[in-house]
Amino acid sequence: MRDSISMDIPINTEGGSRVVLDLIYSLKVRDVMTRQLITAAPDSPMREVQKLMRDNGITGVPIVEGSRLLGIVSIGDLLLALDDGRISSSAEACMSRSVVTLEEEMPLTFAISYLNRYQFRRFPVLDKNGALAGIITAADIIKTLLVAMNREVERLEATIRAPASPTVANASDEAEAALSLSFNTYQFDFDNAGKASAELKKALRNLKMDPTIIRRAAIASYELELNQVIHSSGGVMEYIVRDGRITIVARDSGPGIADVAAALTEGFSTANNWIRSLGFGAGLGLPNAKRAGDDFSLDSAPGRGTTVCVTINYALPA
């Protein structure tokens, strides 16, 4: 039921301005959401929900029991109820039950990509205990971003300086290598997480590498890439293929690992609940990467950042 006018928020979460990227990754859902909630109880008649929408100029009403979210009644649900003569029925009987929610600790990028990804126009926000904490709409995001961008532009205008010169890869290294690639990662950028590894896989396929070797390299690379996205403040994934050896170097700028031995133990994880809800944070990342490689080294300390190096040997053509 997507509107004829696209509801997409025209902000690119992939490329684009570094300033805008920094903003949408540093702002949290809780900084943006509306906390004054207009809700209804499950036994409220739809007629009452309709009145709530009209009186408050809103297009969706969360149906709650205490602070627990049961569902949401949207304009679409209301129209269906009117069509079917169910306007006197309870909200519980007419609401949408399969509700996509956000958590308040998620970065704003999640809200932006959810709006672009799902047809829903609003997302209820839950706190870490699963209680309803707020609601977020495209208008909330646009308002907050405009204010934040204005502030940022003013700050930048005050400190305009020449851009730093881009780093140039070592030419002599590159001449010998069959492959040399490098990708940046950003914290919580789950939309692009895995892209570096997918590129590595593609490149290894082009080199006609053995499928088992490609699979091992892809696994090691993906786990290290996801670790950067989940745990670090951003980093670089580097790949070098040379002389029968694939080298994967994952280097990030912090915060570093306090207990390296624990981090290498299967099942140990410091990921929070919403990261776990995405299927990550099982404490298998580093152990998987280590198992996939022939050699593994990890150098990390709190405040310094982490560098992980995995190498995989492959047979050179005779």
Binding site: Y222, L226, G279, L284, P287
Partner: peptide
């Protein structure tokens, strides 16, 4: 499985 690293491994 719902754990992606588990699937991966």
């Amino acid at each position: 499985s719902d754990l992606l690293s588990d699937v991966m491994g």
